[in-house]
């Protein structure tokens, strides 16, 4: 808890070779049964998200219904892993999903997306959000502190948030689009993991670029390093910008080749996405119906 900033060694990443590696993963050809299986898996890994100022209870109820039954005509399809909403909407989601729902409720807290509030306010927000019924908290790190080199502040804030979460799982959003370099991503990942994050997550979705395969690989490698050293698994959540099924499958290939089969599980890997679900559905039904469906066939969450 009182690790000093100098205790995080600088991590160096060669960006050109990261691109080479993810370029190879992008060439993975995922067809037939493997595609079917991974499409369903990807669907089950989605944190179906709405994070808009204009969100309404009606929209959140509809989102929950979609999370529970992504395509009502096909009850055999898996639910998504979670819905992801603002704290205000947690009670709406809880009442829509019920207490026994396999679909988790994730809420963004800590003054999402900028995180520019005093720490006590953020911790209070976290505690209240958990009390409202959130299973998972998606926090943002203090990028300002990180970029000015105050790594200890970043660590302390994550650790405090983790404590405030109580039983809820904590996802730590690095906002990699603001960290900019892969060196920073690698270091921030390690700080977040050391401070007790259950998941590390790329982005809020409010800043571009959001998730990329390159950034995700660097974060997966941080998770791998931690696991090999301690035996403790940490989850990964790329969020934002993952809209089509093919890209989602390549994310899964990257996870499989970097962390292995244990992480091919909604408990350890999530997609933060809204429109991805429909493209996955389209691909799944296409495989079964033999032709593509119009996007209109699926509800817009």
């Amino acid at each position: 808890m009182t690790t000093s900033p100098s205790s995080w060694p600088r991590v160096r990443v060669d960006a050109a070779t990261v691109a080479v590696r993810t370029g190879r993963v992008r060439k993975r050809s995922i067809k037939k049964d493997s595609k079917e299986r991974l499409l369903r898996l990807a669907l089950s890994m989605i944190d179906l998200t709405t994070l808009e100022g204009m969100d309404t209870p009606g929209k959140v109820r509809s989102l929950c219904s979609k999370a529970r039954h992504p395509h009502p005509e096909r009850p055999d399809l898996p639910s998504t892993a979670a819905v992801c909403v603002y704290p205000n909407m947690v009670p709406v989601a809880r009442s829509a999903l019920g207490s026994e729902s396999p679909v988790k409720i994730a809420a963004v807290a800590t003054s999402f997306p900028a995180g520019q509030s005093p720490l006590p306010l953020k911790l209070d927000e976290v505690r209240r959000t958990v009390e409202l019924g959130a299973d998972e908290i998606d926090m943002v790190i203090d990028r300002g502190a990180f970029l000015r080199g105050d790594h200890q502040a970043v660590y302390d804030e994550i650790a405090a948030t983790k404590e405030a979460c109580g039983p809820a799982r904590l996802k730590v959003i690095l906002e990699t689009g603001e960290l900019q370099t892969l060196d920073n991503v690698a270091l921030a990942s390690r700080i977040a993991i050391d401070a007790g994050g259950d998941f590390i997550k790329t982005s809020t979705g409010k800043i571009k670029p959001a998730a990329t395969l390159d950034v995700t690989l660097v974060m997966l490698e941080a998770i791998r390093e931690h696991y090999l050293r301690t035996g403790v698994m940490v989850g990964m959540k790329p969020a934002g910008g993952i809209r089509d099924a093919k890209l989602a499958l390549h994310y899964l290939a990257l996870v499989a080749e970097t962390l292995g089969s244990d992480w091919l599980d909604p408990h350890w890997f999530r997609f933060g996405a809204s429109s991805l679900a429909n493209d996955l559905l389209r691909q799944i039904l296409r495989r079964e119906d033999g032709h593509y469906q119009s996007p209109r066939r699926f509800s817009v969450d």
């Binding site: 993975r28 050809s29 995922i30 067809k31 037939k32 049964d33 493997s34 595609k35 299986r37 791998r224 696991y227 090999l228 301690t230 035996g231 899964l252 290939a253 499989a256 080749e257 962390l259 292995g260 089969s261 244990d262 091919l264």
Partner: peptide, 22 residues
């Protein structure tokens, strides 16, 4: 450091089960 026996292991080989794609 954990001993060789209890060292955490990643299940990489076979994790990505891909159908033939000729």
């Amino acid at each position: 450091s954990p001993t060789e026996q209890e060292r955490p292991r990643l299940k990489i080989a076979g994790a990505l089960d891909l159908a033939p794609s000729p």
